[in-house]
Simulated assay, not measured.
Amino acid sequence: MTADTQWPFADPPETAVFTIDRILDGEAPVLLVTHDDDDGAWQFLDGEHVFEEDARVVSLGEMAQFDPSLIELADLPLGGFAWRSGPAKPWTRGEGEPPAVLDSQGA
């Protein structure tokens, strides 16, 4: 995002969000995003099993800078999730709990 681009998310850039170390370390791309219905939390994951010790808290603004394609999900509603099969692939959206296995054809 550039300085003249308006922030597209309803939540401010400094909102704390969850991700995992292997994404921040560049070892895995963001392939699954959830916007939790119960508390409004955002999670940026790789679609693989997550252990509690893998979790990291960063700001929503940092995640948007880290992966600008996440801007496309700014309107993801509470209780929504989105996934893709690879970093350059389009996002597919769903509602409720994401299934245990996501594929490029849908949940």
Rank of each mutant, 00 (worst) to 15 (best):
P90C: 05
D103L: 07
D36H: 06
F51G: 11
P90H: 05
V58Q: 10
D11Y: 00
Q65T: 14
A100I: 11
W7N: 09
F81I: 05
V30L: 06
A64M: 13
P13W: 14
Q43I: 01
E97Y: 09
P99D: 05
G79P: 04
G47C: 01
D46L: 05
A41H: 08
V101N: 07
E95N: 00
R84F: 04
I71Y: 00
A100V: 11
G94A: 01
G86E: 10
T34A: 09
D37Q: 12
P13M: 14
L70R: 04
V57S: 12
F18C: 01
D75L: 04
G86H: 06
D25R: 15
D36C: 05
D38H: 03
T5H: 06
S59F: 03
Q65K: 13
E72L: 14
A74W: 07
M1A: 15
T19Y: 04
V101W: 00
F66E: 08
E48Q: 13
L78K: 13
T19N: 05
L102W: 15
R22Y: 03
V58A: 09
L45P: 06
P13F: 13
W42R: 06
F66L: 14
G106W: 11
R22K: 13
V58E: 14
P90R: 09
F18W: 09
T15H: 10
D38P: 06
W83E: 01
T34E: 02
D67R: 03
V57I: 15
Q43S: 13
P87S: 08
D21Q: 13
F66W: 11
Q105F: 12
F66R: 02
D25L: 14
S85F: 05
L32R: 06
I20R: 05
P12L: 10
T2C: 07
P8Y: 09
D39H: 03
P98V: 07
D11S: 11
T34L: 01
A107N: 14
A82K: 09
G106A: 12
D11F: 08
E97T: 13
S104R: 14
D37E: 14
D36L: 02
A16M: 08
T5Y: 03
A16W: 08
I23A: 09
D25T: 07
E62L: 08
Q43T: 00
P77W: 12
D11T: 07
G80T: 08
P13R: 14
L60W: 10
D21Y: 06
D37M: 08
A88C: 04
T15A: 12
Q43V: 02
E48A: 14
L70T: 03
L32F: 00
P13C: 14
R22M: 10
A88W: 06
D37I: 01
S104T: 09
D46T: 10
L45K: 10
S104W: 02
L70V: 07
L73V: 02
G94W: 04
D36E: 03
T34F: 05
S69R: 08
V33R: 05
T15L: 12
L45R: 01
W7H: 11
T15E: 12
A3R: 13
M63H: 01
S69T: 15
F9L: 13
T2H: 12
P77K: 11
L31R: 05
L70D: 10
L73H: 03
E27P: 02
P98M: 01
D103G: 09
A41C: 10
A107D: 14
H49L: 15
V50G: 00
G94S: 01
G86N: 11
E52P: 00
P98D: 03
E27V: 07
T15D: 04
